[in-house]
Design a protein around this nucleic acid. Structure first.
Lengths: 343, 343
DNA sequence: CTGAAAGCGCTTACAG
DNA sequence: CTGAAAGCGCTTACAG
C-alpha cells in the first residue's frame, strides 16, 4: 500500500510500469498503439494509469520524438475580426487533427515575424501558418528559404517559394464589380488595400477585368489604394464625395474599409443603396446588421483554415514540398447595399 | 574545418561547447546568466553560437526545468470580438513577460474545458487563464480544486476558490442606467445575459441599484435575460416593441445584443436616439461607426489581460495563492444613442 | 570558478 | 513478444 509516490508530483511512466509489473517500454508501446496486448494486461495498465492519474509529460515526449504535435499561427493582429475568424477556423482544424496551436501575433512587425520563424527552427513548433502584411519585405523571403514546414496563408510573400493558401481575390473583385455593373452602374470606384500586397492587387485586377469584359462604356472615377482599415475608408469616402464626377458605386476591398466609409456617408447624409451602391470584401463582420445590410464578397475563411492545417500537416509528415498555391473560391453575398443608380 | 556536424540537424549545446573548448555546463550557465565570464570567453561562446546558429531546444529545457514558460488561454470562442480583444490583450502582456501563449478554445463545451485543465496538470503549460460561460457547472469547480496556477478571467466559477479578474459589471450597469435616468428616461428595460453568470447578474444588479438610488418614480418595462448574442438582442427588441407600454430607454449587457436590436429597430422603423435610447456594454465593436454612434460601457480589456497575466505569473513563481478577486473599473463612453425621451 | 555526471520523462532500436 | 539501455538536449547539485 505504501508506494513511495509523492502525491504532489505527477506520476511517470515508470510509476505506472512499476504499479502493474511491466517495463516502461511495454507501457509506452501500449500507449502509442504500437503493440497488441492481451485484454488482461491492458486492463491492468489502464487501472494503474487511472489509479495514479498518470498524464504523459509532453515535453519529454517532444524531446524524444523531435516533434511537438503543435503548430504556430503567425498573425498580424488577433483583434481584427477577419484574422480572428481565420484564427478560429485554424484552431478548429488543428484540434481536429490533434494539433496544439500556439498564437504568434506580430502586430505586423517584421522583427517579430522573424522571431517566430526562429521558434520553428528551434523545433518549438512543428510547423507554421504564416499570415503577413509584409510580403514585400525581402528579409522575410530570405528567412523563409530554410523553413520547410511553413505554409503561407491569406497572402503570399514576394520571392518566397512556399505552399500558399489564398482566397480568390481576383475573382472576388470581378464578381463584386460585375454585380455593380449588372445593377446598371457605369461610374465606378475602387477603394483597396496596399498595392504591394498580392491580395490587394488581385482585387483591383478583378475590378478592371469586370469592367473590360463588360464591353460597356464604364468610367473609373477613382482607384484608391491604402490599407484595409476603416481609417482608409473614411479618407477615401471623403475624397470620393468631393470628386467632380463622383461614382455611383464603389467596390471596397475589405469590411473595415466599408465601415469607415459608412461613417462618413452617414455624417454627410449620403444614403448607401439609394445614393451610392457599395460592395464589401471579407464578410466577417455582422454586415447584415448594418444600415442597409451590406452586400459583400465572402472569404472562405473556414476552408482556408482547414486547408492550411492540412497542408502544413503534409509538410510535417515529410511529404515532398510542393510549393503549390491553392486558390479557394469566394462567394458574392447579395444584401441591400447595391441598387440601380439614380438617373 | 571538418566538424562532423550534420548541417540539417540543429546544433546543440554540446556542439557549441565543443566549438569553443568549454563544457556544456559552462555554456549553459552563461546562457542562463548564472555566471560571470571574462569578455574573451563570452566572445568565443557568442561566436560559436553564431557560427553554428545554435538555438536552444525548448523541450529539453522544459523537461529539465519542469516548466515551459508558456501559459494557456482558455476561451469560448476567439471569433467573438470581445474575446478576440481580450485574447489580444493577454497575448501582448504575455509576450512582454517572455511567456508563450497557447490558445485553448472551448466552444463553451465543458468537456473541452476539462481537457485543457488536464493539459495544465501535464505541465504542458505552466498556468492557465480561464474564461468560461459555464461557471455554474459543478464539474468545473471540482476540477479546479487541484489546479494551483489558474486565474479566472471575465467571470467567476461558482464554488471555485481561485484568483479572479473581472470588470466591474455592477458599476457598469449602474453607470449606464444612471446615464439613462439623467437624460430624463423613466421607463427602462434591461436586456442581458444568462442569469446564471455572475457578470450578468451584476449588470442587472447595477441597473436596479441606479433605479433605486435615483429616488425617482421609474418603471421597469422588462428585464430580459438570455445570452450575450445578437440573436437574443433581436428577440428582445421584438418583444420590447410589442409591449403595451414600451420603455423609452434600454440598457443592454453586450455589444452583440445591441447589434441584434439595431437590426430589428431599423427594420421596424424605430430610430435609436430619437425613438428609443440605448446603452451597450463591452465597447469592443466599432460602435462609433453605427447609426447613431452607440453609447456604451467600456470594459477594461487591456488592463484585464495584463492583470491576468501578472497574477498567473505570481502563482507560477510559487507565491502563496491568494484567491482574491480583482475588480477593474469600467468607463461610460458617451456617444449619440442616448437622447431625452419624447414627451 | 569549472567540469563530469546525474537527472528530467519519454521512445525505440537492439538483444534476448 | 518483452525488457534493459541508450538517447533526445537541456540544467544543476556535487566534486575538484
Amino acid at each position: 500500500m505504501n508506494d513511495k509516490q509523492d502525491p504532489r508530483k505527477n506520476a511517470t511512466l515508470k510509476d505506472v510500469a512499476g504499479a502493474c509489473g511491466l517495463s516502461v517500454a511495454t507501457v509506452s508501446r501500449y500507449l502509442n498503439h504500437s503493440i497488441k496486448l492481451p485484454k488482461a494486461t491492458t486492463d491492468r495498465i489502464d487501472a494503474a494509469i487511472a489509479a495514479l492519474s498518470y498524464q504523459p509529460n509532453p515535453h519529454a515526449r517532444s524531446l524524444s520524438l523531435g516533434r511537438s504535435e503543435t503548430i504556430g499561427l503567425v498573425v498580424p493582429d488577433i483583434s481584427n475580426p477577419y484574422f480572428a475568424h481565420l484564427a478560429a477556423a485554424v484552431e478548429r482544424a488543428a484540434s481536429e487533427f490533434g494539433l496544439g496551436l500556439v498564437l504568434c501575433p506580430t502586430l505586423s512587425r517584421t522583427d517579430r515575424e522573424l522571431d517566430y520563424l526562429g521558434r520553428l527552427s528551434r523545433r518549438h513548433v512543428d510547423g507554421l501558418l504564416f499570415i503577413t502584411n509584409n510580403g514585400d519585405d525581402p528579409a522575410l523571403a530570405r528567412a523563409l528559404q530554410g523553413a520547410t514546414t511553413v505554409v503561407l496563408v491569406d497572402d503570399d510573400i514576394d520571392g518566397a517559394i512556399a505552399p500558399t493558401i489564398m482566397a480568390d481575390s481576383e475573382q472576388g473583385g470581378y464578381l463584386a464589380t460585375a454585380h455593380l455593373i449588372e445593377a446598371g452602374h457605369r461610374k465606378l470606384a475602387y477603394v483597396g488595400g496596399p498595392a504591394r500586397l498580392t491580395s490587394s492587387r488581385s482585387r483591383v485586377g478583378g475590378f478592371r477585368r469586370a469592367i473590360a469584359e463588360s464591353g460597356l462604356e464604364i468610367s473609373i472615377s477613382a482607384e484608391l489604394a491604402g490599407d484595409y482599415s476603416s481609417a482608409h475608408g473614411r479618407a477615401a469616402a471623403n475624397r470620393i464625395l468631393s470628386l467632380d464626377e463622383p461614382p455611383t458605386a464603389i467596390f471596397a476591398a475589405s469590411d473595415e474599409i466599408v465601415l469607415g466609409m459608412l461613417a462618413v456617408f452617414k455624417q454627410r447624409g449620403v444614403k448607401v443603396g439609394a445614393d451610392i451602391s457599395v460592395v464589401a470584401f471579407d464578410d466577417v463582420g455582422p454586415l447584415e446588421l448594418f444600415d442597409p445590410p451590406l452586400t459583400a464578397i465572402r472569404q472562405p475563411v473556414a476552408a482556408m483554415g482547414r486547408r492550411a492545417v492540412e497542408r502544413v500537416l503534409g509538410l510535417i509528415k515529410g511529404g515532398t514540398r510542393e510549393p503549390e498555391t491553392e486558390i479557394l473560391p469566394v462567394e458574392l453575398i447579395i444584401r441591400e447595399s447595391v441598387k440601380p443608380p439614380r438617373n
